[in-house]
Nucleic acid binder design. Structure first.
Lengths: 349, 349
DNA sequence: TTGAAAGCGCTAACAG
DNA sequence: CTGTTAGCGCTTTCAA
């Protein structure tokens, strides 16, 4: 893409704002009262005479005054900001979870701000620093367990909870589904259709859920008397469509290729379908595909995708509640929560 | 979904954190120097004797001290936080833009935090309040022009810029593509394939881009001697797949239904393809489809989608630079920027 | 090179 | 019901 017509960015000159400089004392002066009274009005304290209150309110909106929350927060030692860290905001799976978090946060008077970590420990750490440095009150982490472990050591008692992805050993409150069982359900569905050679397209096992689902896949096959072949499994370091597509093509290149594929994410599964098509395989006639998550796109593609539905909104809401609990009562023992999943059968199997 | 085993959330007890209470003066004490010296070391000021510096540094990491940025920011009157407001984090189009913003912000020592506004003026306003109240230094807004207009009035000189969606009349720095020309290019491509009845599936015209693309569509047809029929056009209040699907079905239900459809978003277009299929139409044989944005999914679906590519990453990067410029020099006249688009021809046309 | 002290804007005792 | 005042934790003159 071509050059744009921007100019050089000059050195930042911090602290200078255009028409600024209105503080609580200015308002107090205008209203002819003390700063304490203004503060009381601003914070809705009861013991202020209506007439006084009105004077203050008048002065406030005559002047367009807004509290400086930096100052307020310094005083009250809370920011009413919650952070949500996701490995990839581009993955639609996270969007609905994030909405769940946001709605609960909002209900409780908190702002939720989203951080894209790219599953990178460095980025993640820098966001955790916002917590350490009091710029946020708490955080919800959806990043890989490996990242969480690293973080847990250096940020012991920081107020955060894990969502979707958790390591019980880390000792942090969490909410998730039962990934092991869910993967088993997916595979058993495939087995019930008569498939014996079932492939697994997994993300890389930095993610604990990847390990759990792999175990679920493995055990479900074993229980059916099938020893899953190493060749049937691929671990990818990406959940992008492209990654799924090329993995599927590689899987099909083998002799005795699987007749069914379980992908641990819908985005992967959608890529898989594309990849299958590109090597001349039809879904589900030649190869059946089941995904994971039930993102809204899953029902829109051709063929509509069979998948494991996660209660995304509820996952987010629960995570937020867990965090709020922890904030309200830092010492209490906050429980881990497992929410139910559901197999949604569509036409890809 | 079933009950979870959470407990009641008790009333928040603000300001209380577990093992806390370490401030700069504590470090100063431990190091046997003054707070001023600690501050100087922390901020990398040159005039500190190496031996002193070492003492301080030792005390810092012996104690695990972190600056309280609330206090620092109060002093310096800047937060080094940038806000990005998007109407829907679930729309993949925004993800790459957000990454562009983030990378530039990060390079310049800023944090970028994402806000999902749901295109709701109320939510948007509440995020703008973070700016007004000094919790963030600047903002990038991708919300509809109508929202921006409403906001512009009440938040005159606040440091923000518009991205993708802008109204020149608002007088705020912006970066976008030329939506009018891009839409024209899409339609002219369809015309070149011999189509005469071209449908338009648009979002609702709170979005200025929707109006601009509609005009581009309209004029391109007129120039080809075709008067576009009202019936060929649908305005949707959603960019979800489902919305595109049902709109397409409705379009096809008419006599003299369009033989080609231009959808103003890839998500819509993907829904359109699904909807077309559900009423027995083949793409592109019966109906051609062109989308807009070129999200990564566009190449993965069947058939791969012809679309207008926007330079998403660059849009984000430029928006961030514009904002940084504005912050560095609040009085300077920051330009509007238009970036080039590109027609990507795949198999849906 | 270092320290003492003022003050950023606000809230919350404590008095009155 | 209202005002005075002491900090929250930090940066930054100003003096030494």
């Amino acid at each position: 893409m071509s050059r744009t017509r921007q100019e050089e960015i000059v050195a930042a000159r911090p602290g200078v704002r255009p028409a600024d400089g209105l503080s609580i004392s200015g308002v107090a002066e205008q209203a002819g009262v003390s700063v304490a009274t203004v503060s009381r009005v601003l914070n809705g304290h009861a013991n202020v005479r209506p007439a006084t209150r009105d004077k203050v309110l008048a002065a406030v909106d005559a002047s367009g005054y807004r509290v400086n929350e930096l100052a307020r927060n310094l005083r009250t030692a809370e920011s009413r900001l919650l952070l949500t860290m996701v490995p990839d905001v581009g993955n639609p799976f996270y969007a609905e979870i994030v909405r769940g978090i946001d709605s609960v946060a909002r209900q409780h008077g908190y702002f939720m701000l989203l951080c894209d970590t790219g599953a990178d420990p460095g980025r993640e750490r820098s966001y955790f620093d916002l917590l350490r440095r009091r710029r946020a009150d708490g955080a919800i982490c959806l990043d890989p367990a490996t990242v969480q472990q690293a973080l847990a050591e250096e940020s012991g008692a920081l107020p955060w909870v894990a969502c979707c992805e958790f390591d019980p050993a880390v000792g942090v409150p969490y909410v998730s589904i039962d990934n092991y069982r869910a993967a088993g359900d997916a595979v058993r569905h495939l087995l019930a259709q008569g498939h014996r050679r079932v492939g697994l397209i997994n993300s890389d096992d930095d993610y604990l859920y990847a390990q759990q689902r792999q175990q679920g896949y493995h055990d479900a096959l074993m229980e059916a008397g099938i020893t899953p072949h190493e060749r049937w499994r691929m671990n990818l370091n990406s959940l992008d469509y492209e990654a799924g597509a090329s993995a599927a093509a590689m899987l099909m290149a083998q002799r005795d290729a699987p007749t069914a594929i379980f992908a641990v994410s819908d985005t992967l599964a959608i890529g898989v379908i594309h990849g299958l098509r590109s090597v001349g395989k039809r879904v589900p006639d030649d190869v059946a595909v089941v995904g994971f998550d039930d993102i809204s796109l899953a029902s829109q593609i051709d063929p509509p995708l069979t998948t494991i539905a996660q209660p995304m909104r509820e996952l987010g809401e629960t995570a937020a509640r867990l965090l709020l609990q922890r904030l309200a009562n830092p010492l209490a023992n906050v429980p881990g929560v497992l929410l139910p999943h559901r197999l949604v059968i569509r036409r890809s199997t």
